[in-house]
Amino acid sequence: VGDQVLEIVPSNEEQIKNLLQLEAQEHLQLDFWKSPTTPGETAHVRVPFVNVQAVKVFLESQGIAYSIMIED
């Protein structure tokens, strides 16, 4: 199991704000291929294997929908 690319769908401005804060966490080494800008629009982010669980827990705790787009 390696890195994953998640497709994330924020449903409101609050969730977009939370994702932008997540993007700013440099220690997570997230690679946003497509940043969140509009509710209902997908964002794509590559998550290093060591941080996959932490990111998924965060998304679930914020009620942000996501799916695994690419499993490496």
Rank of each mutant, 00 (worst) to 15 (best):
I8R: 00
V50S: 11
L22C: 04
L22S: 02
N18E: 09
N12W: 02
E26V: 12
P39G: 04
Q25N: 13
I64R: 00
E41I: 09
A24Q: 12
P48L: 05
L19H: 00
Q4L: 14
W33A: 07
V57R: 13
E60D: 09
S61R: 11
Q53S: 10
V55H: 00
T38S: 09
S67W: 10
L28K: 03
D31V: 15
V50R: 08
A24D: 07
F58A: 03
Q21M: 13
Q29E: 07
W33C: 14
V45E: 00
A43N: 04
A65Y: 11
P10M: 04
V57Y: 14
N18G: 11
M69D: 03
E71C: 15
F32R: 02
G2H: 11
I68W: 05
G40Y: 08
Q21F: 14
A24M: 10
P48K: 06
Q15M: 04
Q4R: 07
A24S: 09
H44R: 15
V47Q: 00
V45Y: 02
A54I: 12
G2W: 12
H27P: 05
A65R: 12
G2E: 09
N12V: 01
K56W: 03
V5H: 08
L28D: 02
T37F: 06
E26P: 08
P36E: 02
V1T: 12
Q15K: 02
E14C: 06
K34M: 05
Q25F: 10
I16R: 04
V9P: 00
E7F: 10
Y66V: 02
P36W: 03
P10A: 06
E26W: 13
V9I: 12
G63E: 05
Q62A: 13
V9C: 13
L30V: 10
A54T: 10
A65D: 06
D72S: 13
Y66S: 01
H44P: 02
Q53Y: 10
K56Q: 06
V9A: 06
L20I: 10
Y66I: 01
D3M: 14
T42K: 11
V57I: 13
F58M: 05
Q53H: 13
P39L: 06
Q21I: 12
L30F: 04
H27F: 09
N51H: 14
Q25E: 08
T38W: 07
L22H: 03
A54S: 07
L19E: 01
V52R: 04
Q29S: 09
E71K: 09
E14K: 07
Q4Y: 15
Q21C: 10
E71N: 11
I8W: 02
K17A: 10
G40Q: 04
L59A: 00
A43R: 03
A54W: 14
Q21Y: 14
N18M: 15
V55P: 00
A24K: 12
L6S: 01
E14Y: 09
I16H: 03
D31L: 12
L20A: 07
E7I: 13
N18W: 15
Q15H: 07
G40C: 08
W33K: 08
V47A: 02
Q4I: 15
N18C: 15
S11A: 13
P48D: 04
S35P: 14
V1Y: 13
P36L: 05
A43E: 01
G40N: 07
Q62W: 14
Q62E: 06
T42R: 11
A65C: 08
E7C: 15
N18S: 14
Q15S: 03
A54D: 06
V1K: 12
I64Y: 04
L20M: 12
L59F: 03
A54M: 11
Q25R: 08
W33V: 13
N18A: 15
W33G: 05
V45K: 00
E23I: 14
E26N: 12
V45P: 01
Q25Y: 09
Q29R: 12
V57F: 14
E23H: 12
W33E: 08
E7Y: 13
D72T: 11
